[in-house]
Amino acid sequence: MDNLQILVAAPVFSVQLLIDGILVGAVFALAAYGMALVWGVMNIINIAQGEFVILGGYVTWAVAQAGFHPFLGVPVSFIALFAVGWILYRAVVARVVDRDLFISILATFGISILMQQVMNQVFTADVQTAQSGLGTLFLFEGQVTVAQIKIVAFVFALALGGALVVFMRRSRLGKAIRATAQNARAARILGVDTGRVYAITYSLNAAICGAAGALVVMIWVIQPFIGLAYTVRSFMIVVVAGLGNLAGVVAAGLGLGAAENFAGFILGAEFQTAFIFSLLVVILLGRNLRLRRQRRVLR
């Protein structure tokens, strides 16, 4: 518990952990929003979420390698992953969309393995990163340092999230997506082409992840095999926040980012990943207990 004493003695380091955590939490929230979208509209839990993020990172990396500024990678990744999502939907997901949820989990798991391995063949297992060229922000007389790219990523993530909300509320397509989420059959009767809505929803999710991946490669490093952590984080955020609750997703995302940093600091880095996954189990059990109390099921 020495680590805890450090935080008590020098609270400024808590500020460091908190700021870092909240800024990267926005990136987690972005991927989680995409997952909530697919889950809510199509009733599919997309296990390949993390792989979309990583692939988006590679697209941005390629953009940076070609000599452009990696910021350009955000829209490029968005568009490229939209296309990838469309192809995957047509080839695989369309065939499992109305099946048992477990089948779609497995199918997207297959997609995830396939994508990992193809990325490994194409980009090799080397770690890659893209340099934004931004500097560092100093706070509290230099005691707290924040990479400016994290601030930019935070703003990007929130802006994209805001744009999506407007799209969902205002556009015809957005309304069709929401209608399908509420009741697919009714939407179909009222003339919504649900097949197309599904395709767009899945592709849009991939595109959102792609943009998140563009931010990830500028903040950290990527490798073909580290996608699962993003999938799990997305899932946790959605479970905590619920479907169709953007404010909740953002809050849960930021909270998770901060919680991870504090866990890594206090428990030691070896338990940081363990903490995330244990938290997942605890959150699910807690949710179940709460529901059980509400349901008052006969025992």
């Binding site: 380091f13 460091q16 870092d20 580290i226 991870e260 600091f265 880095a269 940081q272």
Partner: peptide, 21 residues
């Protein structure tokens, strides 16, 4: 004396500790 998990892609927590001590 931190052990980094194999999937780790963020060392912020450890490095904050380095800044502290």
């Amino acid at each position: 004396d931190d052990k980094l998990p194999k999937e780790l892609n963020d060392m912020t927590a450890t490095l904050t500790k380095v800044k502290a001590v």
